[in-house]
Design a protein around this nucleic acid. Structure first.
Lengths: 352, 352
DNA sequence: GGATTATGAGATAACGATAATGTTTGTCCT
DNA sequence: AGGACAAACATTATCGTTATCTCATAATCC
């Protein structure tokens, strides 16, 4: 009876101590390479630990050390390549530093975000990297009150007063817009989502600047094609393409014929391509198309889509580094705000 | 001095107890809605807890309860839409059950997988859902020895004797192959990766069966186009398209002209499309193309790609349900092996 | 060779919660 | 009125580590 249950229960420090004939304390010191144990004893203990398959109980350790060696990541959804890359990079780096990653998804919903934050707080995390769903949210103050280091990515919440890392949307849109303008476009339309995100507002502003810098005027009714926000959250990204298709088709059917499109998401370009194809409008001869995000399929579109290479690894890398600094107490107490400039990938869709 | 540090430290049960004038135990019972506390006292305690912003210390709770309310997910990489969907669904359901998800990535590397397992064991997880990197791996036995419930997905390890959930690769490939055969194809090529995975072996077998059932012979040299395995792991999925492009181009340039391609990954179809386009081979008139995975972009390919809708949500759902049953002790002690049959999405690439 | 340090290890006390018993008080019944 | 019994709370133990303090013994010094 006792024998059968023995296999189930993991050996503890006490068990090990009894076997070796020392105290749990000494075992702990030996295994964690702390001083106070002779080399021979240490070797003996380590060998015995290995033999018994001893694994320290994290719960006990966490309780004493007050840390679980875990950082949380809150993003809206990892089907979005931007976020999956971000999370991957965070995981990779956290792992190097001996941390594991707790994944919490908010699905672009304020309610779910609140829930995710709540679960994060109840999970005893050492720190949190998050891409907030909405601006001006008080949902995050409990995190700060609890003294848990927080680093934001992608979407800024200036009033929170925490570190922020992001791709430079303003520079990005100017890069893409300038690129088509430099190639002779005179009438550019920005196809983007109609959402109250700072990222999108920044893009619109940058777009406008770019036009004006080239001596063109910016008229929202003329240069903007806005995709109505989705009523409910849909997991598949391809709906973005459908939405973009509809908006683009509508615009073209109203007789509007710009000579270049700049979009806020590669998926929009996917839908746009279809709308153009259906109307026998050739890319890039009749109209140039510039994407955003360098999604894996863009190189294989026909023609290959010029797009913007977002430095998400870099963002994730720096954000994680900063978070770990906070956790380990090696961070200065400035509020860091970094926007990393993306790079253009020019392909056939803008080459005349 | 003492005042400044007060804000940092989270209030504990003891603190609350002192304030209310009761014992920590009573507070605990009150807050967890366990009997033994009068209604008025309970209300008082809850109010005070709210006022002080009391959050139970998970570390302590985990220690005493022996559970962290966390399940781990080990997949190779979440940039792959299959896995990101899987992970999303697991997260969604785990959340419903009050569990959080720890994400561990193995990047298709046996070494990293071993490391991930190690970290999982040291993280005090309640259970583990994993897509193993390779077959016949002893890496997983420590998990079983530690008595941590394990459910495998996607790739099977029969010798481990644990539950397994997957899409039905055999049924899937027969669905796709049958579909092109039913539409008049007489000379079909399977374009797939040359890797020693059970999934791929199953696909080849199913493909062969399908041909033979239609009175065709299966000749590896004739009906198989194999993509050499990547030497190093590459994050971006689009390399799969490049590899497929190269293999397909090579095949076509050797003068081979099948009347249908069936592929093992939608990305292969992306590369294949390009190879065909370059040689002015029309889809579907000259050759039909059948994909695998229903990735978001397939609907927007030109022509839209017929493909296979993998029931990953279903797989994730059942696997998670099963894992939670194990954790909560409500699972029977059979070894469950379920393969869920995918569905066809017929589009223009196979419509003559 | 005696006082002084290192050195290795034990004893004890956290960490913050929950579980298993105790103890008090009050209520009900006959 | 006296005993049974339950409600409401307190006491104490426990989970498995790590940290601090103490103490014995061996090594080192002049």
């Amino acid at each position: 009876m006792a024998e059968t249950s023995r296999g189930r229960r993991q050996p503890t420090l006490q068990d090990l101590a009894k076997v070796v004939g020392l105290t749990a304390n000494t075992i702990s010191r030996a295994l964690n390479d702390r001083p106070g144990v002779s080399a021979t004893t240490r070797a003996l203990i380590k060998a015995e630990a290995e033999r018994l398959g001893y694994v320290p109980n994290v719960h006990a350790r966490s309780l004493v050390l007050g840390s679980r060696k875990t950082i949380g990541v809150i993003v809206s959804n990892i089907s979005n390549p931007f976020f999956s890359d971000l999370v991957s990079e965070v995981e990779l780096q956290a792992q190097h530093a001996g941390y594991t990653v707790l994944l919490l998804l908010s699905y672009e919903s304020a309610e779910r975000e609140r829930d995710a934050i709540d679960r994060a707080l109840r999970s005893g995390l050492d720190g949190l990297i998050a891409a907030p769903v909405q601006e001006r949210s008080t949902a995050w103050t409990p995190v700060i009150k609890a003294g848990i280091p927080l680093v934001l990515v992608s979407r800024e919440l200036p009033e929170l007063g925490v570190d922020f890392y992001s791709t430079d949307n303003d520079a990005g849109i100017q890069l893409t817009t300038d690129a088509v303008l430099a190639r002779g476009a005179k009438d550019v339309v920005l196809l983007d989502e109609d959402m109250p995100f700072s990222t999108i507002r920044l893009r619109t502003e940058g777009f406008r600047h770019s036009l004006e810098r080239h001596g063109l005027t910016f008229d929202p009714r003329h240069n903007l094609a806005l995709i109505p926000p989705a009523r409910s959250f849909r997991v598949s990204q391809s709906w973005h393409a459908d939405d973009a298709y509809r908006v683009a088709a509508d615009l073209l059917d109203r007789g509007r014929r710009p000579d270049a499109f700049v979009v806020g998401d590669d998926y929009y370009a996917l839908g746009l391509y279809r709308a153009l194809r259906e109307r026998n409008i050739r890319i890039p001869d009749d109209v140039m198309v510039m994407g955003w995000g360098n999604l894996p399929f863009t190189r294989f579109m026909e023609p290959p889509l010029s797009t913007l290479l977002l430095p998400f690894e870099e963002v994730a890398h720096r954000a994680t580094r900063r978070l770990l600094d906070h956790i380990q107490g090696t961070a200065d107490n400035q509020i860091v705000t970094e926007r990393i400039v993306p790079q253009l990938a020019i392909r056939a869709s803008t080459t005349r």
